[in-house]
């Protein structure tokens, strides 16, 4: 109390040291959290899928399974549910094939810049629908308008057809342009979209396609 007029609150040295401490410690916490998170969001393995081990981001071979999005009472929101085996483009993909296909799909998504029209996991542009759960969208399922217009009878074939010739299938004045996507690239993109729909996004988008469900009754994906 000796020196009344020199308050710590106006001491540059106090603020500088506090700034250094808070910044340094926040960085350390962020790095620590990053290690923890990276462990949790690394892709699972094919064995995880076979043994029904839940992973936040499953292995690429998740494209061989039926995926649904169901309300989980314990967590209070929907989560992806990986079900039984289901052929993808008429076959089961080996680990290596699936990884290669997903790689092609992710590369194509960047090369064609999907993210500057659509959102992926909710990030990107707001000109076209969010693609996070596009694979599960009722419009793509049997009987849905998007699958219907392509004349195909599986989700993957309908999506691949649309992606190759989007402007041939207009549904609204706002259309997706032809981006020169080849048949192979389209398969890759569909694998990418299917894989993305299996990621545990903590319930985003909430009540996905609730309206369509109300209209049709039943689950989100058929």
């Amino acid at each position: 109390m000796a020196n009344e007029n020199r308050s710590v609150w106006t001491s540059i040295s106090f603020w500088r040291r506090s700034a250094a401490w808070v910044t340094g410690f926040a960085v350390i916490l962020l790095i620590w959290l990053t290690f923890d998170t990276l462990g949790q969001i690394s892709m699972g393995t094919d064995a995880d899928l076979k043994n029904k081990v839940t992973k936040r981001v499953p292995a690429p071979t998740v494209i061989n399974y039926h995926i649904d999005y169901k309300y989980n009472a314990k967590r209070g929101h929907e989560v992806p549910v990986i079900g039984d085996k289901q052929p993808f483009f008429g076959k089961e993909w080996s680990e290596e094939e699936a990884a290669k296909l997903l790689h092609l799909g992710k590369l194509t998504s960047q090369a064609k810049n999907c993210m500057d029209c659509h959102t992926l996991l909710g990030n990107g542009a707001y000109y076209a629908p969010d693609l996070t759960k596009a694979w599960l969208d009722p419009a793509w399922q049997n009987g849905g308008p998007l699958q219907g217009m392509t004349g195909k009878n599986t989700v993957e074939e309908a999506m691949a057809e649309f992606l190759q010739h989007p402007s041939q299938y207009p549904t609204h004045a706002r259309m997706m342009p032809n981006l020169g996507i080849t048949a192979e690239e389209a398969k890759g993109l569909v694998a990418f979209l299917k894989h993305m729909s299996s990621i545990d996004t903590n319930g985003f988008p909430r009540n996905f396609s609730q309206a369509a469900k109300r209209e049709q009754g039943g689950t989100y994906a058929h």
């Binding site: 000796a2 020196n3 020199r6 710590v8 001491s11 106090f14």
Partner: peptide
């Protein structure tokens, strides 16, 4: 940090 600075200032 506050109390250390206070000591220093005093």
């Amino acid at each position: 940090i506050y109390f250390q600075e206070k000591k220093k200032l005093n």
